[in-house]
Design a protein around this nucleic acid. Sequence first.
RNA 1: GACCCUAUCAUCUAGCGGUUAGGAUACGGCCCUCUCAAGGCCGGUACGCGGGUUCAAGUCCCGCUAGGGUCGCCA
Length: 549
Amino acid sequence: MTPEIIARLFPNPLPSVAEIEAKYPPRRLPEGAKATRIAPSPTGLFHIGNLYAALVAERAAHQSGGIFYIRVEDTDQKRAVDGALKVVCDALAHYGMRADEGVDADGKDYGPYAPYTQSQRRDIYQAYVKSLVEKGLAYPCFCSAEDLDMMRKVQEKNAQRPGYYGKYAKCRGLTDAEILAKLDAGAQPIIRFKSSGDPDRRMVVKDLFKGELNLPENDIDQVILKSDGLPSYHFAHVVDDHLMGTTHVTRADEWLSSVTTHIQMFVAMGWKPPKYGHIAPLQKLDNGNRRKLSKRHDPEANIMYFAERGYPRDAVVEYLLNLINAQFEDWRKANPDTPAFDFPLNMGKMSNVAGALFDFVKLNSISREIVARLTAGQVYDETLAWARQYAPDFARRMADNRRYLIDILDIERHIGAKSRKDLAKWEDVPPEVSYFFDDLFTMTHNEKMTMLAPMDEADVMAVARDFAAAYDPADDKDAWFDKVRRIAGAHGFAADMKAYKASPAAFKGSVADAAKILRVLVTGSDKSPDLHAVMRVLGREAVVRRLNG
RNA sequence: GACCCUAUCAUCUAGCGGUUAGGAUACGGCCCUCUCAAGGCCGGUACGCGGGUUCAAGUCCCGCUAGGGUCGCCA
């Protein structure tokens, strides 16, 4: 291609390749250290799969003494959304990941390879594209969207592979004169990479997670520079991961089929490709079929869903870690008090090669274990932080009753393995504690009696009155229960369960029924945590009032 | 349609030629027990199908089937 054509293709002044290479020298990393990145598109959504990939990349880097950085892939300007960067940065920070280099929520760069936003690296990409054109490894393409559409239709009709390759790569063979003529006519070309591949030849790629892959070579002439002057993903990836010294690219499975294209480009540029690891997508069950979690259809695909529900961040991290490496579970059992991030993630032992079903039951179970290990004060703080954002009324109530809430949350907590595990997420807290507040305890007398049916109302009231009169918050659990027994016995209920079981007909009910009377009257439910503890927290005044009311 | 990936209990998985196929979650039962939760104990016809290779196959090979992914001037 003549210098004249190249000058017309790239009219603006561009840095030289040598200048760029000098500005961004190779990383000097300790032996074995990995440089990884998370490369989100600023679409305003942070997918659970992004978090998954970020976790793998971040752990791989930091556990090897390397670098984890964030690079914004905003080459599709149509999809860019304001404030999207903040979503990404907040998500990383929220889940405890620190990027060593990249951009912050305001778009400000930090780190030696800046800028880390692709739309600001236009000149860099163009310089390399230009060098490729100069070497005859790339060429201008004047095909319109309609041309390409037609091409695809023909291919479909002929039962051929779709794509811009071989004889379909019309602009590949354009002569200088033809190019000049089109340029003179005002046509705006894009630039395509001239593939040297042959699909009949195979390329062996070693994937970090999947092992050796035997893939056909790519022969499609991919677009590398779009009409808006920005590169396509493929080219931006190759240039950036070279310049930024990425050693390990961990990315979603959907890239697997373009890995041959990427390697081909690295080779054409004379660069060493990074190691690749492709992560299978998280899936969900849909009408009996699995499909990948879609951010369009599945609210749980968006990381915000977990914040809204009030899942503790550690629960989400541990659940994901558990999917990444199945050994996590054993490790957790052996190291119950170690932070999850200390888990030695093993890239060579990746689970989830095929794509796991996202399992809320399992998440909840992990979360309950985590919440059960927290102090009441910690649960209070976390729940309050959640409520401030998602349940303001409840947040106010919490703030006004701090001591009271902590006492409530402390019921049956810190009794080791037997601690209550009924809270999986912060949104479970409000319904769990509502009966402790008079204004939320709205059950009517009739409703309570219905719940107590078929017990006789007179018996119910008698037991309640006697207990109200005898209740002393200072009683310990045994003294408290002795009173329940005594009063139960005095009203014809069996004080002893064994006696009741031996001859149930001889009694109106058992001590369990007597306790049920107290429980329903005091909590409005026939299920509750330890009644003795509940009454203590509620206080004598409220207990007596509810029993006599 | 083409290409690629994957295939062990309901779910996540361990397994890397010789195992009574292990764990976790879920589920069921029992125990504990004033209810619930928790806890303890016990339980279930899990290697997709068919061919090979081998003394021996969940493990290796081939086919089939099923599921997933990709085939854009989106990433």
